[in-house]
């Protein structure tokens, strides 16, 4: 009996929290790795359409994004409501796309360059006219791998 009492008295009543920082750090690193920091401001409204035959875009560094949609309300006074293209964080014309592609390309190591994909994030309500113009420019500048961004269909 005395033996038991002595042992219980010795054991610390607290749960050790020494490994808590390690656990939190692990979570922290996980989130740091999966995080994509928002790159600049969205100046066009884009709600991509729904589709079922989706493919995942693998390497983020090999993807450049082209946004097409109506300017957001803040910019409608200045840019109107007809669909516009956004490259990086500013409004652009079709003829600025080749430079944009080139600027992205030089950041990618040479062997991986053929795998560069352009992700077209186009609003569902945009008409095909502007999309076709963008596609033509992409074809002319040799960027043939594109991805029509879409949401998985919910049912």
């Amino acid at each position: 009996m005395a033996h038991f009492v002595k042992k219980r008295g010795k054991a610390s009543p607290e749960v050790s929290t020494a490994s808590l920082p390690d656990i939190i750090f692990m979570l922290l690193f996980f989130f740091m790795v999966v995080t994509v920091l928002r790159d600049g401001e969205r100046k066009v409204q884009v709600v991509v359409p729904e589709a079922t035959q989706l493919q995942k875009l693998e390497q983020k560094s090999l993807v450049n994004h082209i946004w097409i949609g109506k300017p957001v309300e803040k910019y409608q006074a200045m840019y109107g409501t007809s669909p516009r293209i956004q490259l990086g964080d500013k409004f652009a014309n079709e003829n600025e796309i080749p430079l944009f592609l080139e600027q992205h390309k030089i950041k990618v190591p040479e062997p991986q360059r053929p795998r560069i994909t352009s992700s077209l994030k186009v609003d569902g309500d945009v008409t095909m006219g502007i999309v076709t113009d963008v596609k033509t420019v992409l074809r002319k500048s040799g960027q043939l791998k594109i991805n029509y961004s879409a949401r998985p269909k919910q049912n």
């Binding site: 995080t35 043939l144 991805n147």
Partner: peptide
């Protein structure tokens, strides 16, 4: 560590980029 964790939780957007991949003709 919690503070940093919460910062990253808030700024994270885990939106997997998905779409229909197409090869355009040259």
């Amino acid at each position: 560590a919690f503070l940093l964790l919460i910062f990253f939780l808030v700024t994270t957007t885990i939106d997997v980029d998905k779409g229909i991949t197409v090869k355009l003709p040259p």
